[in-house]
């Protein structure tokens, strides 16, 4: 008798478990979400190159901007450009993370792994929960590396411990919103061209904020777009909380950065979460 054919008593042991009570469903959803998260973490161990690359990229950017262009940059109201730049790079790191979400989601979809998950008796939420947790962890790691780099090049968090924690919280809130945008975009992607496009668009969208230069130095209309870019609110809010130069401004949006750094991500979640769920349910491939 072959090994694949389970002995009769094994057949019962291999019977699938269907969660019937809400509590059981919740427990399995957590367990399945953790299994999918472990898969993401195993990827880090087996292919550390990808993770190292994504940790090194923001560091490289901050060194490049801080030292190559830094001398030519004017911080409005005066101040050290590197102090101005590092909070912007924190936000950009969250944006680059979205590219990773898109890539991972699209790869699973196009290779049929998502379809396989969808035919299994696992909690449907686990696929996205696992993705979200993995990506949040990798972003947390990237923030830590950039934090250390910032300290090494003369940036400082001047605020209280509470303010610093709040700043990190706002960054992660933004990343959480971008997870859902990334999942939605990833599920839309038909092939690798789309991913390249998303990764290319990250730059103009990132430059069109207050991350690298103050919007007041841009042409009027462009400056307005940059100020209203949802990323700018988080940039200004964390500058304020870290006590770095370059926050505040004349416009309403600039004066309410802290509020908007919460509102924008919540709006993004409200848009992309239902879109992603719908897309996930109606996938045709």
């Amino acid at each position: 008798m072959s090994i694949t054919a389970p002995r009769p008593m094994d057949r019962a042991a291999l019977a699938p478990v269907i969660a019937r009570t809400p509590l059981a469903r919740l427990r399995w959803a957590a367990a399945d979400g953790w299994t999918v998260t472990l898969r993401g973490l195993t990827h880090w161990v087996r292919e550390p190159g990808t993770l190292i690359g994504s940790l090194a990229f923001p560091v490289m950017m901050v060194l490049m901007f801080g030292y190559f262009f830094g001398g030519a940059m004017q911080v409005p109201g005066g101040g050290n450009y590197r102090e101005f730049l590092v909070p912007g790079m924190f936000v950009m790191t969250m944006v680059f993370g979205m590219g990773e979400t898109v890539t991972a989601v699209a790869a699973d979809k196009n290779r049929g792994v998502t379809s396989r998950f969808r035919t299994m008796p696992m909690a449907p939420s686990a696929v996205v929960v696992g993705r979200a947790v993995t990506d949040m962890l990798s972003s947390l790691l990237a923030l830590a590396v950039l934090f250390a780099t910032g300290l090494a090049i003369g940036w400082e968090a001047h605020g209280t411990l509470g303010e610093t924690t709040l700043a990190v919280g706002l960054l992660l809130l933004l990343r959480f919103a971008l997870v859902w945008a990334g999942i939605y975009l990833g599920l839309l992607m038909k092939g690798p061209e789309g991913i390249t496009m998303v990764q290319t668009l990250e730059f103009p969208i990132g430059f069109l904020t207050s991350a690298f230069v103050a919007p007041s130095t841009m042409p009027g209309w462009l400056g307005t777009i940059a100020e209203w870019n949802p990323l700018s609110s988080t940039v200004l809010a964390v500058r304020e909380l870290f006590g770095n130069p370059g926050f505040g401004g004349d416009s309403w949006i600039a004066q309410h950065a802290l509020l908007m750094a919460v509102v924008w991500p919540v709006v993004l979640c409200a848009v992309f979460f239902p879109l992603s769920v719908r897309r996930f349910r109606n996938l045709t491939s």
């Binding site: 699938p16 379809s115 396989r116 998950f117």
Partner: peptide, 24 residues
């Protein structure tokens, strides 16, 4: 499925253990 749908980075064994866990 018509095209193999497994995790390319994980090993064969890790794939099967993961699917086993997801089957509870």
């Amino acid at each position: 499925g018509q095209y193999a749908a497994v995790d390319e980075v994980l090993s064969g064994r890790q794939n099967l253990v993961m699917f086993g866990r997801l089957h509870h």
